[in-house]
């Protein structure tokens, strides 16, 4: 049994927010007698993450994902509960912990904007107090692995977003963190760069056993990077299990693509839970809610009427599964 890297017990964070009513008069009133309300960003969230695990921490905007990461990295103090990362209390032992963890915030850069990444590498080696020989070895290894050599001496402001993000992740790994927090690392990147970054992160996890804690709105990140998912919404935990289990639980329908023997003839299926998504001559795509009607029933009904040349049954994309999860968790609140 692998060791526990992160342990979170009933962690909560409440923000005091000024209530602002609409209009100038209300604005003046608010100036004299401001009204505040308590907003719970995270409510009694508990979970553990084992060493070397690749966890997707999911939820819609405002669900409390970033707030949780900020508490686990010691940036924010919680309002209630307890957390341990690598056996340390993040907000009380922040300095000690930050030597052992790394973080990449997709929207907050660690790189110096007007300087080339090579200068940030040098500065980071001083921040993390790395031995010169170790620093040089690790830097060269990361440069090679991330393929950032060609633009290492170009000012960050002149790099593309993809190049910058590769440097961003490489810099955050300089001190060999045992846990890495990635907060939307692929935001705004094109598909090729996204895929490359996923491969690099996977490789890192495989070779160095780094625990991965990822938040993302990109279904591809979850599917290709993570083996476990936690979903939170409205500050509360809604799901915590393996990614495959998530698929099974929320996968209520299948996509069936088929090539029919005859030309365009109207299908008279009239079956509950079956929707025609696309019809292009002999090609037909159906969405079938398998909890209502089985695929077998649908296929036998079609075969009774027409010849079937080819059939493919697919799971819907991860994107749809996540949408389904968010909407069902929102309606259950």
């Amino acid at each position: 049994m692998a060791q526990v890297s992160i342990r979170v017990e009933e962690l909560g964070k409440t923000f005091r927010v000024k209530r602002k009513r609409e209009g100038f008069k209300a604005g003046l009133k608010g100036l004299l007698k401001p009204e505040y309300e308590e907003k719970a960003a995270v409510e009694e969230v508990s979970f553990t993450v084992r060493q070397g695990e690749k966890l997707a921490f999911l939820g819609p905007n405002g669900a409390g994902k970033s707030t949780t990461i900020k508490m686990l990295t010691g940036i924010l103090h919680p309002s209630s509960g307890h957390a341990e990362v690598l056996g340390l209390n993040p907000w009380k032992e922040r300095t000690k912990l930050s030597h052992r963890i790394g973080s990449v915030f997709g929207q907050k850069s660690q790189l110096w904007y007007h300087l080339p990444p090579s200068d940030t590498f040098e500065l980071m080696s001083r921040i993390y107090e790395l031995r010169r020989s170790d620093y040089r070895r690790r830097r060269d290894e990361l440069i090679e692995r991330f393929g950032i050599g060609p633009y290492l001496n170009t000012a960050v402001r002149k790099l593309s977003l993809g190049e910058r993000m590769r440097c961003e992740i490489a810099v955050s790994l300089l001190h060999r963190p045992q846990v890495i927090f990635l907060d939307e690392p692929t935001i705004g990147l094109d598909v090729v760069v996204k895929q490359h970054i996923r491969e690099l992160v996977n490789e890192l996890n495989r070779e160095e056993g780094t625990t991965l804690f990822l938040t993302s709105h990109d279904a591809g990140d979850v599917e290709r990077l993570c083996d476990r998912a936690i979903v939170i919404n409205g500050g509360r935990k809604m799901f915590d299990d393996r990614v495959e289990v998530m698929k099974l639980r929320y996968l209520t329908h299948k996509t069936v693509r088929m090539v029919l023997g005859e030309g365009p003839r109207p299908l008279r299926l009239q079956l509950a839970g079956v929707q025609e998504q696309q019809r292009d001559g002999v090609k037909l795509t159906l969405s079938i809610d398998t909890t209502v009607t089985s695929i077998e029933t649908v296929l036998s009904r079609i075969m009774a009427d027409q010849r079937l040349i080819d059939v493919t049954v697919e799971d819907p994309p991860m994107e749809e599964i996540i949408t389904q999860m968010y909407s069902s968790s929102a309606s259950s609140r």
Binding site: H99, W112, Y113, H114, L115, T120, E122, R126, R131
Partner: peptide
């Protein structure tokens, strides 16, 4: 390998301060 928790903390802090100042100046001179 980090030298954190090893003797020479003040010296390493000064190196860090110097590295920051140097980066600022390099950035300004861009």
């Amino acid at each position: 390998m980090s030298d954190y928790a090893m003797p020479g903390k003040s010296k390493r802090l000064l190196w860090f301060v110097w590295a920051c100042w140097k980066s600022n100046l390099l950035g300004a001179m861009e």
